[in-house]
């Protein structure tokens, strides 16, 4: 018998409410601060709400960051290229690991899984040297070209999904006259849309949130992403204008939140399945 609503003890509910409030507080504090005039941010004890919301803080913060829209464009461009690149290439590779039988496949896949244990800081020095050698330092290429070479984690996710598609479908298509690539393109990809969307979302977040990559590969300010622009804002100003920093942080966070709420179900399902297999 499933426990009924009333059988949940009251302290469970209280604990949840308290924890929920605790988890929401930082968001509240961020937005509240972002709408305060500078002097109200410094008040002791702190004021929960601005006496009158300063909507101007947002345009001001954007101006303080410098070419905000250029940064936003750079971030979006990189996110777009990364999403396209990784979805396509990871799907291709996942197909090779799931829907084709070839000698050595499982050994290769094991190597792929093992590469998930190599974090970026471990390999960034030689990679930097590599990009330096081809003259890509100070350009966007280091930040998007690798996405076209498939991400191990995305391959893993997509492979799981591809494995669940019946083999018969590929064979029917083969008899219908499909080449291998066409089976991939016209049969498997359309059926894998939910998984592809998940990968696209994860990749968008990862690129949008990336800090270390842009930090080491970009040189000129007009190439900065929002993350770098925001860090520059944090660094340049003395006497820390917390209202501006909070406004700018909110702006950087906003697209992510919007995307999350638009795709919540896919997103949560995607996260949940990553841990279960």
């Amino acid at each position: 018998m499933k426990p009924t609503r009333s059988s949940v003890p009251w302290f469970t509910r209280v604990a949840l409410i308290l924890l929920g409030v605790l988890f929401l507080l930082p968001f509240f504090w961020m937005v509240s601060t972002s709408l305060k005039p500078l002097n109200e941010t410094m008040k002791l004890p702190p004021q929960w709400l601005p006496s009158s919301p300063q909507w101007n803080n947002y345009p001001d913060a954007m101006r303080a960051m410098g070419p905000f829209w250029l940064y936003a464009r750079n971030s979006l461009l990189l996110a777009f290229l990364n999403v396209i690149g990784t979805v396509f290439s990871s799907a291709l590779v996942a197909y090779g690991f799931s829907r084709l039988d070839w000698r050595g496949r499982d050994a290769c896949f094991f190597v792929l899984l093992a590469t998930m244990m190599i974090p970026f800081p471990v390999v960034m020095v030689p990679i930097y040297g590599l990009f330096k050698a081809v003259g890509w330092i100070g350009t966007f290429q280091p930040l998007w070209v690798p996405a076209f070479l498939a991400g191990a984690f995305n391959v893993f996710l997509l492979r799981q999904f591809f494995l669940s598609i019946p083999r018969d479908l590929s064979e029917a298509a083969r008899i219908d006259g499909c080449s291998e690539f066409r089976i991939f393109w016209q049969i498997i990809l359309p059926l894998a849309k939910p998984a592809l969307l998940t990968v696209a979302l994860f990749q968008f977040m990862a690129t949008w949130n990336d800090f270390l990559g842009p930090l080491i590969f970009l040189a000129r300010e007009n190439q900065y992403t929002l993350a770098l622009g925001l860090q520059a804002l944090q660094g340049t100003i003395s006497g820390t204008p917390w209202h501006h920093l909070m406004a700018a942080s909110t702006l950087v966070l906003l697209p992510v939140l919007v995307l999350f709420f638009l795709t919540q179900r896919t997103f949560i399902r995607g996260i949940a399945t990553t841990g279960l297999k």
Partner: peptide, 20 residues
């Protein structure tokens, strides 16, 4: 609610908590 904070980009997260 519990999931949202994990979405916050590192840069926003760090600046927010610097303030917190």
């Amino acid at each position: 609610i519990f999931f949202l904070p994990s979405l916050v980009p590192a840069i926003s997260l760090a600046i927010l908590w610097q303030w917190m």
